[in-house]
Amino acid sequence: MAKVTQLIHKYLRHSKRFPHVFCPGCGHGIVLGSLVRSIHYMGLAKDDVVLVAGIGCSGRIPVYVDFNTIHTTHGRALTFATGIKLANPRLKVIVIMGDGDALSIGGNHLIHAARRNIGVTALVLNNHIYGMTGGQSSCTTPTGSFSTTSPFGQLEDEFDISRVTKVCGASFVARTTVMQAAAMDSMISEAVMHPGFGMVEILSPCHTQYGRKNNFKTCVDMYKWLQKSSTPMEKYRELPPEKQEKAIATGIFEKKDCTGLEEKYARMRKSLRGEN
């Protein structure tokens, strides 16, 4: 275990101001560490990795790491990533989005990236709220929980990000929380190595905006809640329905063999040129 921290320090851009911009106890920092570790374990060179980010708290993550990084417009991170992957299929493209970025403004792009099965990896950091803009309720805010724009409880039902992408045809879908950092490492590396569209939903608590309105006094309370409610998929299926409502299923939901769009494109190009 000893060399994990120095390893991460080797990948950071030390010209940027540290400690980073996230609130004390924000899970986004854990995701950043996990991403660096999994890329290192896969043995990828820094030049072969592209991090694409949209707008939001999660959009700050690529700023701090020394890969090829691009900070794009709101919700359109996946479209930039599609272009990068098709232009240069050798690169490993990882898209980091928040829940608002991925599903509210960029929901259309998410479902179509999943349908196309383009070989990029999307990390959706779900914190149940629009954290950066002041804690308005987003499309993933759970029913009945409180936010700035739902002071009497959220009326609408929330999106299940994993289910949406699975139904749309993504070849790898998984969900994990920041409390299971080791599991997150292996899920991210599996998603990056899997051909086709990979989506990892990471539950990362926002105690500054979501926690304080929903009876979590400190960030530690939110982490304890995550630890208590996250259940592996096999156990989750056996739970009675009233307990399933409170539990969060984690694990790999979908893993199917498929050919990525960039591979199909390369094949078609070869056949049209008569190179076969």
Partner: peptide, 17 residues
């Protein structure tokens, strides 16, 4: 040396060696 603090520190501020 379970390593929990090292991999769960959001600010990379702990080292166990």
């Amino acid at each position: 040396n379970c390593g929990f603090c090292e991999i769960h520190c959001p600010d990379f501020a702990i080292m166990v060696y």
